[in-house]
Amino acid sequence: MKSNLLNNFFATIGRKTLKGLWEIDQYTRLVGQTLYWMAAAPLKGHKIRFRSTIIQMVRFGVDSIPIVATIAFFIGIILGMQAAYQLKPFGASIYMADLVGVSVTRELGPMLTAIVLAGRSGSAIAAELGTMKVSEEIDALRTMGLNPIPYLAVPRVLSMMIMLPSLTLIADFVGILGGLFVGIFSEHIDFWLYFNETTRALVLKDFLTGLIKSGVFALLVATIGCYQGFSVSGGAEGVGKRTTTSVVTSIFMIIAANVLFTGLFYSTL
């Protein structure tokens, strides 16, 4: 009896591990194929679907501007207040401009924008492709001799990789505005003083590291959405499950990748 339970216990762990490894293997394959169709295949004369890419860019990017901007503004305010609170006793309130500027451009701008898009667009990708899978639309594509990777995945990944960094720039700017807002109205710092302090503190590298990160986050969010969508089985319930998984996995991967990046940039740059 006891050994039976133990057996079941280890069997379950084993099965889950194998399933997990299998999923990672499948996911890596999808990423590999997507990158191939995005970067290598165009050199061989396969065209990229720009029309469809632009449609997705509007869906992922333009439509997300209000929510991303609002959140970035709030984050700027929160960071500003936190910084001011800690710097004021030293009479160094003005340095809040440095703190807000650097944290927003290097860390919070890219990460929060990516998380918003994981919830808003990554999930939409998973749900849309999952529904197509369930209603045999993807099978229909394949029987027409159309490969779903260049046809469906590439436009989504490409548009995400263009729009997420662009949105990140907007978030950076609006986040800094949020800090400025606190600086002017709560700390009574002169606008030009704050502005000059910010430009002095920020270097191009801060934006660049942020943008590199957001490019990688974009690849993660879009490919995880595609993978979960293509993996749906078992009707509408399966679509729901995979959509949730896509959001949770994306957010986890964004944060994990960010740790890796920050470690890397911190030690080398």
Binding site: S135, E136, E137, A140
Partner: peptide
């Protein structure tokens, strides 16, 4: 190349919604 010469009607239609 083979698939281009084949047509398939799925049980549920499988139209692109």
């Amino acid at each position: 190349e083979v698939l281009k010469r084949i047509g398939m009607l799925f049980q549920n239609g499988a139209l692109f919604n």
